[in-house]
Design a protein around this nucleic acid. Structure first.
Lengths: 95, 95
DNA sequence: GTTATATATTCCAATTATGGCATATAAAGA
DNA sequence: TCTTTATATGCCATAATTGGAATATATAAC
């Protein structure tokens, strides 16, 4: 396989390699959310959430949509759920 | 979800967030390989490969088995393929 | 024991990520 | 225009990651 493809995939995994960003992804699986809702649900500073959202957007995992003052984010890929379930299995085996 | 679960998942993604380690995973999808075979196929120093293998093993993605001087590594999870295919779709959409 | 071979570990400098705080922007209302 | 509100960006110190080079360990053969 092309070396750049590995780099590109590694970037996607890097975007997912942070607990806060994973929590955001999890929140978005229940549908589109504005930044304010995400800030409210998670216990982190708004700038931190904004930067996290930007990182996820950069690698193409989420997309945004403006509406007045609000910015709504939503998942851009659908196969995340299956992989997360798979990881849960691995993690549960450890106990 | 428990905060530690997010941390644990983030660690797994971090292990996958490197092109060399992804190449190793790819190699192992065709079956068990000894370190020497992996070093031969990929163009990296042996210590680098060893460290990469160790990181993948630490998070539970691969396992090892000794036989004489050789150490054989193999995948420990089976759902990787599906997720990789999913990522390929995302990456291909960009073109 | 000594040597050769396969693999792992250590050390290190350079780069990159993290998360907090302050500040900037942009849209809407008065 | 001035203010408020939602979101984004910049700066910074600390921490983590990267990959190379040298070295250590472990097993097997002699």
């Amino acid at each position: 396989m092309d070396n750049n493809l590995y780099k590109r995939k590694a970037e996607i995994f890097k975007a997912l390699s942070n607990p806060v960003r994973l929590e955001i992804i999890d929140l978005l699986t229940t549908g589109e959310k504005c930044v304010c809702e995400i800030v409210e649900q998670l216990n982190y500073e708004q700038p931190h959430i904004s930067k996290s959202l930007n990182k996820l957007k950069e690698v193409g995992l989420i997309q945004d949509r403006k509406e007045g003052l609000n910015v709504y984010y939503s998942l851009k890929i659908c196969c995340m759920g299956d992989f997360f379930n798979c990881l849960n299995k691995i993690i549960n085996q450890e106990k």
